[in-house]
């Protein structure tokens, strides 16, 4: 069982299949919200890390010189390794990857290295954070 949220790690994004029709809500997350590709949310993984921070915690993530704040509202199955820490919504992934959200799909998505993962106070606005 993991004890702490790691300061760095690997992330990817939700499969297209978790919200196949963008005009309809996606599958229900661990907090009861419906997953949306356009939200700024994340799922924590693997199973051994599910309880290191409470659901609803806000996380500030940095990658490739870009920064985004997401709400942790889901648990993920992971890929069998401890290196993979988060799956991000398409919008959060797109910002960190520096691509338009409309281009994020199962065919285009890869793995992102998160250079910094830290909790941020409740009330922090979700979404991109200016790094200038």
């Amino acid at each position: 069982m993991a004890d702490d949220l790691p300061r760095t790690g690997i992330a990817s994004t939700y499969s297209d299949s978790f919200q196949p029709d963008p005009s309809k809500p996606g599958l229900r997350t661990a907090t009861g919200e419906h997953y949306s590709h356009l939200g700024f949310t994340a799922a924590i993984m693997p199973h051994a890390r599910w309880y290191v921070v409470p659901m609803g915690t806000l996380l500030r993530l940095k990658s490739n010189g870009r920064c985004v704040v997401v709400k942790l509202n889901d648990r993920g199955g992971g890929n069998g390794t401890m290196a993979r820490v988060l799956d991000l919504s398409h919008a959060a992934y797109a910002h960190l990857a520096g691509v338009p959200v409309s281009t994020v799909s199962d065919r285009s998505a890869g793995l992102l290295t998160l250079d910094d993962i830290e909790t941020t106070p409740a009330g922090t606005p979700l979404g991109p954070v200016s790094t200038t």
């Binding site: 939700y14 978790f18 661990a30 199973h47 599910w50």
Partner: peptide, 8 residues
């Protein structure tokens, strides 16, 4: 059962 949208 599910534990998350992507955890069954």
């Amino acid at each position: 059962m599910q534990f998350g949208a992507a955890a069954q």
